[in-house]
Design a protein around this nucleic acid. Structure first.
Lengths: 173, 173
DNA sequence: AGATCGGGTTGCGAATCGCTACCTATCCTG
DNA sequence: CAGGATAGGTAGCGATTCGCAACCCGATCT
């Protein structure tokens, strides 16, 4: 027991968009919270278990899955071979913007209060900005400032003002 | 059947961080994909069902939950009262940066290819930037450029260079 | 050697998922 | 206005998955 099977239907959708692929890796219950704990400096099974209150078998399963997906690495410590260190890989660290964006959304729309601890710039101790989608020239874009474009749209430059040199550059590849 | 009960343990954690609160709202399987479909312009039960391939009772449950959480609104159309429109609220639209960040992560670390369709700036048709965590002065911060700060850290300005005027301003509240 | 600790696995009942069939209003058509 | 099609769900039921508690086993400590 404890070896759960994959649920397939997401994979079909992954052909079109990589969101399903991402969810396959970290979309399960607890995965994001384990990740947050890891970002908070936790590295050991018992630490995750006691601070998250997650069931042990589920935790073992999730850690295993995160390792499978290359999001964390499992390393037995040389000085105490009972201890196993779970550590974020570069791939795992790359999930930070997603996690912060989700947390900030929760702050604004769910809890209404800033979470602690706060993530600050290590250089000057100032809290980080709110995560936004930015245009190529750095403007903050709301949903109504964007649109979807197909591969052909991009290649043709038929979307709107295809005169922009930065666009030509991007569309070229 | 179909009325699922909430699982509580997440709520305790929500006191400290609003990530659990956010996950309570959109952390379930399919929720993000329904959201993506909504961002792609789908508005009706059958549209979601056929494009996502999700089971009908699960879809009904998820849509209901998203509506409960104020992420979507359910509106019967006046001209055809069989039809129900599901539409993103402002709160739902605010999830776009999270979704894009997750999708971009999937593109880079899972599928390795850009997804279609591509999200572009409506003004000039240029694809949006990759989502990053930015410092108050706009630098892109990697995980190792940040740290966690407690409320006291912020109030005291003991973190590092507390001389920054922007920091004083933020720490004041 | 015996106790303890870190990191799991096993069993089992409860909750959730997914599939296939209904079901109920509303249109639409003759 | 009867009969069918359409939109949006429910109900039943087997297959997974979750959560809890108990057990296991190889280090390590005393």
């Amino acid at each position: 027991m404890g070896d759960f099977k994959l649920r397939e239907p997401l994979e079909e959708l992954a052909a079109q968009c990589s969101l399903p692929a991402a969810l396959e890796a970290i979309g399960e219950r607890w995965a994001f919270l384990i990740l947050r704990a890891a970002f908070n400096g936790l590295h050991h099974f018992e630490e995750f278990q006691s601070t998250l209150g997650i069931a042990r078998n589920i935790l073992a399963n999730r850690l295993g899955r995160l390792v499978e997906h290359g999001i964390m690495v499992r390393a037995p410590l040389p000085d105490d071979r009972r201890k196993i260190e779970y550590r974020l890989t570069e791939k795992g660290e790359a999930l930070l913007p997603t996690m912060i964006a989700l947390r900030q959304w929760g702050e604004v729309w769910e809890t209404g209060t800033p979470s602690t601890p706060v993530l600050v710039d290590a250089r000057d101790g100032v809290p980080v900005r709110e995560v936004h989608v930015l245009s190529h020239d750095g403007r903050e874009l709301g949903w109504h400032d964007m649109r979807w474009a197909t591969a052909e749209d991009l290649a043709r430059g038929t979307v709107c003002g295809g005169e922009d040199p930065a666009f030509r550059e991007l569309a070229a590849e």
